[in-house]
Simulated scan of single mutants.
Amino acid sequence: MLDVLAFGSVVIDNVLVVRKFPAVNETVQVDKYRYTYGGAGANVAVAAARLGAKSGIFAVAGSDFKKTNYEKHLEKEGVDRRGLIPADFLMPRSFIVSKESSDDQILYYYENRKGTAKKLFENMELAIRLGNGSQVCHFSTGHFEFYYRLLKGGRLKSVVSFDPGQETFNYPYRVVRIIPYVHMLFMNNHEAKRIKELLKIKSLRQIEGPKLLCVSLGAQGSVILFKGEVYRIPAVRPSRLIDPTGAGDSHRAGFIVALLKGYDVKTAGRIASTVASFTIEAEGAQTSLPTWEKVVRRYEHFFKEKFPQPQTSWEETKRELLS
Rank of each mutant, 00 (worst) to 15 (best):
A285T: 10
L151Y: 11
K20E: 15
L90V: 09
Q135K: 15
I85V: 07
V230S: 14
T287R: 05
Q166W: 05
P172I: 07
F121A: 02
V17L: 14
V44E: 01
K20Y: 00
K261F: 06
G154L: 06
R50S: 14
L204A: 07
E208F: 08
R240A: 13
R149E: 15
L185Q: 02
M187D: 04
H183F: 03
D31N: 13
A45G: 07
Q166S: 11
F303Q: 04
M187Q: 02
D80Y: 12
A258H: 07
R232E: 15
F21S: 04
I128R: 14
C214Q: 12
E300A: 05
V97P: 02
Y173Q: 13
A42D: 06
I256A: 00
R93Y: 12
I195H: 03
V265D: 08
G248T: 00
K20R: 15
R252L: 01
L151G: 04
R155V: 12
E75R: 13
L130M: 12
I57M: 05
Y110A: 13
T287Y: 01
N14P: 03
P164T: 05
K66H: 09
Y109T: 08
A47L: 09
Q135N: 15
I280V: 15
A61L: 10
E281G: 03
G269C: 10
P180T: 04
S323I: 03
T27L: 06
F162M: 03
E125S: 11
P180A: 05
